[in-house]
Design a protein around this nucleic acid. Sequence first.
RNA 1: UGGCCUAUGGUGUAACUGGCAACACGUUGGUUUUUGGUACCAAAGAGUCUAGGUUCGAGCCCUAGUAGGCCAACCA
Length: 678
Amino acid sequence: MSEERKPLNFIEQIIEEDLSNGVSKDELRFRFPPEPNGYLHIGHTKAIGISFGLGEKYNAPVNLRFDDTNPAKEEQEYVDAIKKDVAWLGYKWDKELFSSDYFQQLYDWAIVLIKEGKAYIDSQSSEAMAEQKGTPTQPGVDGPFRNRSIAENLDLFERMKNGEFEEGSHILRAKIDMQHPNMLMRDPIMYRILKKHHHRTANDWCIYPMYDWTHGESDYIEQISHSLCSLEFKPHRELYDWFLDQVVDTSLIRPKQREFARLNLSYTIMSKRKLLQLVNDGVVSGWDDPRMPTISGLRRRGYTPYAIRKFVETVGVAKRDNVIDVSLLEFCIREDLNKIAPRVMAVLDPVKLVITNYPEGKEEWLEAENNQEDDSAGFRKVPFSRELYIEKDDFKEAAGNKFFRLKLGGEVRLKNAYIIKAESVKKDVDGNIIEIHCTYSEDTSRKVKGTLHWVSIKHAIKVEVREYDRLFMDEAPDNHQDKDFMDFINPNSLKVIPAFAEPSLKEAKIGDRFQFQRLGYFNVDNDTTSERIIFNKTVGLRDSWAKQTRAEHSRSKPTQNSSNQKQQNNKSQQPKRKAIDVIQQLGKKYTNLPEIKQQKIKAEIQELAKNVTYEELEPLFNTAAKKVGTRIAVVLTLGVLLENGQGKNGIINDFITKALEDKNELLVTEAERIQNII
RNA sequence: UGGCCUAUGGUGUAACUGGCAACACGUUGGUUUUUGGUACCAAAGAGUCUAGGUUCGAGCCCUAGUAGGCCAACCA
């Protein structure tokens, strides 16, 4: 009761309204209706989250219904994969159902429609029918078979069902209106002949119902109260309702279709057809390739169900087209993994470091905290010795003091170990650093700026790390009319790295998730064998140092395409704002402020006005009438200019006159004040 | 030569149904820190696509326009 009211999305509002208009809470029922013709992807997660989320919120049942009316594309493999993914996300469906369960009922209802003269058999080619259908801007015309007798329709339909005709020779259509402005209402097809094996009904049927005829009736059979789908089905709603009208018993629940905007992710494609192409063309290793936006891909990549659900919850539900930035997804997975992933050390790009004052042959097992975010995570031991690997990037012979990693003569802390000082380097003939020589001190209480991760060479285990980059180099790869999405494939989306890890990782099992300290989150891939442990990089840590370095680079060569960088560039291009811009901004708020503040702002504007030229001000005379605040700011500025000797002209006089005629008293007052300045 | 839907900071979603535009991500500073992570604090950034109208008062209602999306598969 006392809970803060969380804003409801528009679907929840519809349900609340229905509830207050007499629908009882136990009548609520939802469904998630995937077609088993591909794997689920992150976009589906939104639909899943909406319907199952509503189920959880209202304690209402949610059916998992496979929309399997097209035997040409559907397979049992997909049914199994979909069930696995929904369950993995943590949702529980009430019943597992199939549209194919309703084939007989649908057939019986179709006969009723024929008998009522509301459906007929058409026997033309699909080309001829397409022609008669018209276009979105032109009405259709009736076909020659539209007025077949009921007896003939019944006979033909029966024979279609019995397999007497070839595919494509006849179809059953609803008889609605060939001139209807909604093309879906121009005698839509209800049944086609398909002599294909169905994954559930085998060869029982030679005719299969179309989506529109099936979907609403299935919702009705299951007594779904709210049938939620994505926006592109909006035009189908009229037909959905028409079909329902033909069979509905008013004492039962009549399902309602409502539509929301589907989820789009930047740098990602979300079409099952195109994802299938990536799989078939071998661009990726399968539907569960960690670069795929599929649920199985994200799972293999190391994402958690919690993170994905949190993500879907955060993006919200509305009706406008949207493109979500991948950075939000990354934020959600980092947030979860930060709390739960044990920290370990691994070096991906090693350079040898020798501690010259550490005895040869000596080794120590030092205590390391597993996760400082989790008190119950405990500690482990990591081995330390004279020869270590650190990251190449963590050392520079010479660097400024913004670089607080290791440099010659500089000190740095080794995580969980000692403080070291770089004394010298050993290079090969090409001048590459092959060894860094350091001394260490056992006093670890001192403050040093940098902390590095490391592994002991002698104890390190070799592992394979797979690092992923985005699959596409374009923000919206399937949104180009002149280019195919395949043109934007990133050739370097997978990097295989031989790396060195601390020995505790020997015990790691498939699926285990870790934070490699200072690098990112990694999980153990399915391909791992007893000889070779393979890690996927789930996501990197936020890295403000890399960001800074990148910013410096892009200052010298400004061609970058990340949206974030674009923003940065924009900002650095406008370091100082012009006085006129500040005035404009101050003016916007003017009328909303209490009087004391208005006085303050007024003084500020008048001060700034001294730095404004007439040429800068003149365009603002055209400010829309309703933006009163801006107009007041312009009047104030103009006053200052006039006092400083700016002569009046026709444009100025018009502007003042218009201001004097305004309804807003503040504006009129200020205009009167400058009216008399000569 | 039509119908339907949508329009709020860089992105996404809010705004108690008409009462001085909020939250999250991102960005920028700062504090803490044996992860340049986390946490915490702060700042910048929109007067709500445009033009009219109704109203004491409009992001919300009305009208017209503009822009974007969807609709012509025997797919779902």
